[in-house]
Nucleic acid binder design. Structure first.
Lengths: 359, 359
DNA sequence: CTGTTAGCGCTTTCAC
DNA sequence: GTGAAAGCGCTAACAG
């Protein structure tokens, strides 16, 4: 029973067969007239269009079309947390923008999936009607997600995901970028350097950075950036932030800085620009001047207007990441085998690092 | 031929019939075992599950299920412009967040549609496989969109749309809110008041606010807020901004303020907080002090950290708007007839208005 | 260029 | 509690 919402109005909607009948042609011909996928005489096409017009037929039912062709025209993007949270991060927005734009070129739409959906939902990763899925800097132990999708036969692309998974991965040079920043600090003479990391797992709390937590981490970039920092400062300790907002950075910064001066680091490596901005504010809260009393570096290269000085950071091509992921998806759907790639980052000198203050 | 991507791997995926056969039951029984929509003995259910496991069957194909049930489980959101642009507006993000969250409760997913899709796209409003669509503060002459969707039988909800369209509309008190702010300015003694409006149509350019432009406007809130301002200052002139960012406001503000002092308004009513912030910056650029030399009011109630003082504005419940729209959609899909509603706004005193400077 | 035939994979009466 | 039958609306071979 029951197609559509059996709302008051609607006597059954016309189907392609109805249109074909009215135009005096077979359904297959009518189908071709609509899709252009085959030869039809102009006169026939016109007749079909006219019949459609009369019957108020707007085109093939996408649901039926999807079943028949095996394609829905929809690509899913799995984002961490809820929209309001994820979308506070400019990097995610830019990446999605690039992704959506590129998918649009291929005629596909973007379905937003949050990690938080219950699997009873009609549109969870185990049941969403998607032709492919992009895992976006996710804290799903992405191997789990990937295996579910593989079983479903849904192709996957990851952005900053686990490279081992045998899936094309669009990456940025998180390790090298952080190492570069750490190197600048070392060259200036910093030795007491602390980290403010991104959450290591979905829904992490503010906490010290422990080896155990790092081992259990599911958020790739957080781990990789930590490695990059430790390439230069092997013993660097730090704080795991509870998110990637200015407020989260401020809270983490306070923990690191609101201590006796002798225990205070001379520099802080924050794993995102928003976190770094928060650290700068935390320093200001405590009467410390940046960069005189404290050097701070970030990651991402987003502009943060509220900061009194430009941040020393590395810029990543967020939108291009999305575009590349989109292109990889389109390629995949065309039967190609897109390759992983890793974007370089670009150093932005800014004005938040300096020589360590004499003690 | 060809189901799915005929990629190297995959020998044909198992179907529900395969599972049923293996479990020694009929397809209908297997279906019930999966969906829970009917009576099955526990033992049968277990057998079906086991067979599924063995065949690597993860559940019913969503495409087939959709065709059969007439529901895709997907709700579309039509946003103006591209993601990167729309999502710079915190109000849109919050609204989408509320919407997605509420839809998630109903088990539906959110498909992002941009007005900019070409109608040849597989997933345009003409052909997206959605159970319903939410028009989000759109500049589509929404009547057009609505009529397409009505013909398709896709139910629609609008957010700040045209109320006449015979569609449930989730609105906020744009007119009353702006009138309230204008009233404050009048009470302080302002008489030379200028407007910085939101774009009146998709992709508007910075331009003077003319009667013709206002008549041709497709973006509802821009029109309504203009009316609200003119309820108090009937002759107020102004500038149509080219977007709703701080930069757009700054540009518009410059046009209004970079004139001989005698031509300068003593107050500016901007139609969004971002525009208002831009106006404040434009004033500063010209050496004017806010609110001493110029009073500025906004609209929305978002926090703008980079501003040196809190903005005088009215706050709208952006997330609740989304939630309400989501609830309306769910209601609609349940066969209900959700009603339009209009949220009130709340005055936020801020510190950007004062008595007009003596001339 | 057009029509015939078949079936995508599933859910849902309805009878047992 | 289970099975048989029907068909959602469409497109893709293939034959004419």
């Amino acid at each position: 029973m029951g197609r559509r919402s059996d709302n008051a109005d609607a006597e059954a909607r016309a189907t392609l067969s109805d249109v074909a009948a009215r135009a005096g042609v077979s359904p297959s011909t009518a189908s071709i007239a609509f899709s252009g996928q085959g030869p039809v005489s102009d006169s026939t096409k016109a007749r079909v269009r006219a019949a459609a017009e009369e019957l108020d037929y707007t085109g093939p039912d996408p649901l039926a079309r999807s079943l028949r062709t095996g394609r829905s025209g929809i690509v899913g993007a799995l984002i961490p947390q809820r929209i309001g949270t994820s979308f506070r991060d400019p990097v995610i927005i830019q990446t999605l923008d690039g992704l959506a734009e590129e998918l649009g070129q291929g005629g596909s739409g973007l379905l937003l999936l949050s990690e938080r959906t219950r699997d009873t939902d009609r549109v969870s990763i185990e049941a969403a009607p998607v032709d492919a899925l992009v895992l976006l800097g996710c804290g799903v132990s992405s191997t789990t997600a990937i295996s579910v999708l593989r079983r479903r036969g849904v192709p996957v692309i990851t952005i900053e995901g686990d490279p081992e998974a045998g899936v094309a991965n669009i990456d940025v040079d998180n390790r090298g970028g952080t190492r570069l920043l750490a190197g600048k600090l070392r060259d200036l003479g910093h030795r007491d350097v602390a980290l403010v990391t991104l959450p290591l797992a979905i829904a992490d709390d503010l906490a010290p950075l422990t080896a155990a937590a790092l081992d259990a981490a599911t958020v790739r970039p957080a781990v990789t950036r930590t490695h990059g920092a430790r390439d230069v400062f092997p013993d660097a300790q730090g704080i795991v932030a509870s998110g990637s907002t200015i407020a989260d950075g401020r809270a983490a910064g306070r923990v690191l800085l609101d201590v006796p001066p002798s225990d205070r680091p001379t520099a802080i490596i924050a794993q995102s620009d928003l976190l770094a901005a928060g650290v700068v504010f935390a320093a200001q809260d405590l009467g410390l001047s940046v960069p005189r009393d404290l050097s701070v570096v970030g990651f991402d290269g987003i502009r943060i207007d509220e900061l009194p000085m430009p941040l020393t950071t590395v810029a990543q091509p967020a939108q291009e990441k999305g575009t590349a992921a989109g292109r990889a998806v389109v390629d995949l759907l065309d039967g190609g085998r897109p390759e992983s790639r890793c974007f370089p980052v670009v150093f932005e000198p800014g004005a938040t690092i300096a020589l360590p203050a004499a003690r």
